[in-house]
């Protein structure tokens, strides 16, 4: 029993974080939004870091890592509000194909040659479809590319995608808390930084609490999926609800702390807020996931109580 990431895992996540901070800052988001386009150089950078092959077995040219590493890096993608479909392709699509025993495309995915669209019955759209025609849908998130379409109701795909959405949401929440906190340190009113007022402090502290207690739920879900536990879907749903709640609370708090500035396009916050709104509903809404937990816990099919912490 050791509920900790290894030093190697944490170092990997830190490397990705530093890379994204250096190459994928708010200026990049603004440029992509203004040009309504993707920048192939960003994708190539992720490929060069080996991230498209993170979960691809070594024999197919990947790094052969697991869902825990993927979830940690998905959180970093959320923190950076990454515009490229790395998480969908490499952290959801790859393990889904592996589980089905379909290994034909993996080498090409690792090499960055394929971005994998993931149609599913639970969503009324397909993100990052290869060809875009008249069936384009417009997301509130200017960096999401959506097309009309749906797919089969594949439970494993849903669980993988919901897990990785939850991981991105805790990263998004972290970033929004940090943005609001930094703003509260420099914005002065009544002769002092607004962050000195308890009315601001206590709201931000409540976000810190929500994030602190959402993260371990996400890691627990990643471990359960990695191990293939029968109870994994419950943990995924728990993670999606907790991460959604933490991100929505932090988004609303962050705009409030920014005041009228938060309502402008000029402040970066809106990119992160819009991604949070999108991921909150994607791959099963809060209500969908709450119901899955509720049916298992209240319905008595999942063991509860102090002796069943890791059931």
């Amino acid at each position: 029993m050791d509920f900790r990431f290894t030093e190697d895992q944490l170092t990997l996540a830190e490397t990705v974080r530093d890379y994204l901070v250096g190459t994928h800052g708010p200026d990049v988001l603004r440029r992509l939004d203004a040009e309504n386009a993707r920048d192939p150089a960003i994708w190539q950078g992720l490929v060069d870091m080996g991230l498209t092959g993170l979960l691809v077995p070594e024999e197919q040219g990947g790094l052969g890592m697991g869902l825990l590493e993927a979830a940690l890096i998905a959180a970093e993608c959320g923190r950076a509000c990454l515009a490229e479909p790395l998480v969908d392709t490499a952290f959801v699509g790859v393990p889904w194909l592996l589980a089905k025993g379909e290994t034909g495309q993996l080498a090409a995915i690792a090499a960055g040659e394929i971005k994998l669209p993931l149609p599913h019955a639970i969503n009324p759209w397909v993100a990052d479809a290869p060809s875009r025609g008249n069936d384009e849908l417009v997301s509130v998130d200017p960096l999401r590319v959506l097309s009309k379409g749906t797919g089969e109701d594949d439970p494993h795909l849903l669980n993988l995608a919901a897990l990785m959405s939850a991981a991105q949401l805790v990263g998004l929440a972290d970033a929004m808390l940090s943005q609001a906190t930094e703003y509260a340190k420099i914005r002065t009113q009544f002769g002092q930084p607004i962050g000195a007022f308890q009315g601001i402090k206590h709201q931000l502290a409540s976000c810190a609490v929500a994030i602190e207690f959402a993260k371990p739920v996400v890691w627990r879900a990643a471990a359960a999926m990695q191990e293939g536990l029968e109870s994994a879907p419950i943990h995924v749903s728990h993670a999606k609800v907790s991460a959604t709640d933490a991100a929505m609370l932090t988004a609303e708090t962050a705009i409030q702390v920014h005041g009228a500035m938060g309502y402008t396009y000029e402040v970066d916050l809106h990119f992160w807020m819009k991604r949070s709104w999108a991921l909150a509903g994607a791959w099963g809404s809060r209500a969908f996931h709450l119901k899955r937990v509720d049916e298992a816990v209240l319905g008595g099919t999942h063991a509860i109580g102090p002796e069943h912490t890791f059931a």
Partner: peptide, 21 residues
């Protein structure tokens, strides 16, 4: 919990102490 939220804000988030400025 009001004190705990102050501690969280000041020591974990790095916000200025009450009355600072």
């Amino acid at each position: 919990n009001e004190v705990q939220r102050n501690i969280t804000a000041e020591r974990l988030l790095g916000l200025p102490r009450v009355g600072a400025g």
